[in-house]
Design a protein around this nucleic acid. Sequence first.
DNA 1: GCAAAAGTGTTGTGTATACACCCATGG
DNA 2: CCATGGGTGTATACACAACACTTTTGC
Lengths: 238, 238
Amino acid sequence: MEKLTAVDQQGRRVRLCPNSVPRVDVRLVLFTVRESGLLIALQERDGRPALPRWTPILGESLDAVATHILDDQIGSSERYLEQLYSISHGSEGNGTVSVTYLSLARAEAAETSPGPATWFNVNAPGEFSSVDQMIVDYALLRLRAKLGYTAIAFHLLPRSFTLSELQAVYEVVLDREVDKRNFRRRIHAAGLLEATGESRREGSHRPARLYRLQVAHDTETYLTPAWATQPVRKVATR
Amino acid sequence: MEKLTAVDQQGRRVRLCPNSVPRVDVRLVLFTVRESGLLIALQERDGRPALPRWTPILGESLDAVATHILDDQIGSSERYLEQLYSISHGSEGNGTVSVTYLSLARAEAAETSPGPATWFNVNAPGEFSSVDQMIVDYALLRLRAKLGYTAIAFHLLPRSFTLSELQAVYEVVLDREVDKRNFRRRIHAAGLLEATGESRREGSHRPARLYRLQVAHDTETYLTPAWATQPVRKVATR
DNA sequence: GCAAAAGTGTTGTGTATACACCCATGG
DNA sequence: CCATGGGTGTATACACAACACTTTTGC
């Protein structure tokens, strides 16, 4: 068993990292959809765009850290947050375990971007580190897969929206066209939507009906493990 | 930025864990199938069964740690290994991030159990810690889901097997009966199997043809991210 | 010849795809 | 009246579930 503490020159007991222990950080892949396409929130680091990240302090849950990073980036409107994968990188001297999260923001929340991040188009984000690149690739893979069998697309739209707007989100994320009639049939068959009764007229054509997600389905989780929803403990201010 | 080193009473530089940094461990959920049912490898810890675990040393990848734990438990036959999820637990003083892995062993490899673990039936594993309990529940959920759309079941059988044996694996893991004809049609349609040409006679009934997984499909990964297959660096002996 | 597991097809039901036209509005 | 996007239905192919009998062997 390793010794975990030592006494320093002033006689204080200090906690040692047996130099065998990797550090942990949490990295967030935050997407939003704008007219210009699928955007990702990045912040500059060593002159290159990088994923927003933070190191947890002791006793702080991973979900809490991810939530804090998200708070940093956008206002506290509702958001979607899901753990993705953990990857180790670096080596002797600065080995790190990065726990990665996928997050989605409504376009409206992303407009006002108070945080340190700026929005890049996913197709032209600039050069990031190979680790961040892999994380983003995987996040996009998972996002696309999940569009098929969960309700996460709704988290990219304002509270109420038209079916055409919803379809546009699918098309932007999947990067391909979708058949209008089949799309609408699937959405209606899923039974997650309810008409608000209102409609929106914009432009010289028939107005579009507005829909919202039924409240019962608001926090759709599906295959996320039950224990992923651990309470977000409040933790020392930062 | 935090100070990461200090000088101790003998004047040596030591690495500090700012007492804000959680430790990392890797925990393995290792399943196998025997006549008696679905078994899980556990080892005693504080008088209770617990998941095999290890703490990575610096520069060691998470996958490498998981592989080492697996080596500890069973002989080095081929095995299946997949990262599951990361969970944080504990609090001030002993906060830990556990990265969990799902692993499958062929019954033959599990017979000779040289490691410190013993096999428990998943339905009667005894009492484990709440963290380990959640991890096991989730591992089982994922294993069951993955049976439907991947070839992982083959990792629970010897190299060549009969279709009835394969079906029995599905039934044990899913804990329900499966229709023989539909099962065989699906398996054949998947096109992953090839007949060895041989057959096995045991008991007073028609002999069963033997199949094996086509080599091209041996390391089926599907939704596992490409970068999950990072090379397993060799690391200081333990 | 009988017990015991291996092996094999058909039918219905639901789900996904391909595809083209009328509707309501603003200007 | 026309340009623009909103909204709707049908025919076809494919995947999945239910279901029962014949084959080959050991004894």
